[in-house]
Simulated scan of single mutants.
Amino acid sequence: MLWKNKNEFTFEGKEYEAEDTVTKCLEESRRWTEVVAAAKVETGARNQRPRDGKAWTVPENGRVKCNIGISWSKATCMVGLGWIVRNSEGDTMLHSRRDFNGVSSLLEARRLGLIWAAESMNSHKLQKVSFELEDYELVGSVNRPKAWPAFQLAEWKVSSVKRVANKAAFMIARSVTKERRYQSYVAQGSPSWLRSLLAEEDMRSIML
């Protein structure tokens, strides 16, 4: 809420009373705790569990896939985030990276990553998006429409995957925490330093 309010103040000139912000934070925290607890119980749901050892696959025709990478440092409370969007032909359309400071937990980092990626897809006018990230509990929470209605967009899907299917996005995120690449960006096409990996994943996807 603080991050979103800061952005709205910076870019739109909107101001919020401190008391209103605190109230909203407390309400979101309560709902989030309830949703996560419920998601842990529903361990049998198909879209909660990551695909066991399955490599990256192209999205179905007419959709794009946005893989979200999160790399969090407990020592510095810094998180590196990255996303990469590919189409049904396996071609990279867009990729992005940014960092956040003062992130106190991996759960908070993952939630921040999903919100940031969703807002990015919205700003780029991408509607039929399949999101993938490494957190089955968060995915299970988002996919509960009654408990978490804010994320229920008709043409968006969210799924959990293991690292083998999310490697490119994770490496973009890790470049912040491990290689200290702090400059944020959004770029078209494939990142040059990941082209061999992306080509390999595309080839494997064709063979599946």
Rank of each mutant, 00 (worst) to 15 (best):
W148R: 06
Q188M: 10
G13A: 11
M1C: 14
Q48N: 09
L194A: 00
E155Y: 11
V161G: 00
S29L: 12
A117M: 11
L194R: 03
A55Y: 07
E132V: 09
G113W: 03
A39H: 07
E155H: 09
L208K: 13
E89N: 10
R97H: 05
S130K: 11
K4S: 13
M203K: 14
K54L: 12
L133P: 02
E19R: 15
A199I: 03
S159H: 12
R46C: 08
E200V: 00
C66S: 01
E200Q: 06
L106E: 12
V158F: 09
E134Y: 09
V35E: 07
P59Y: 02
K24D: 14
A187C: 08
R144K: 14
E201K: 03
S184V: 00
E17W: 13
S104K: 11
V161Y: 09
K157R: 13
T43N: 15
E179V: 12
F151P: 00
T21Q: 11
G140K: 08
Y185D: 02
P50Y: 04
K162R: 15
K14P: 09
Q127M: 13
V158C: 03
E34F: 08
E201Y: 00
S123Y: 11
G90H: 01
E201L: 04
L133N: 06
D91F: 06
G62F: 01
K14N: 13
V142L: 06
N47I: 05
G90R: 01
F11R: 05
C66L: 04
M1V: 15
R30K: 15
S73T: 09
D99G: 06
T177C: 02
S123V: 13
L208P: 05
R174I: 06
W116P: 08
K54D: 07
E89Q: 10
K14H: 14
R180E: 13
S130I: 09
R31W: 10
E60A: 07
W116I: 10
D99S: 12
S104I: 06
L138V: 14
C25K: 11
R31T: 12
L2D: 15
V103D: 00
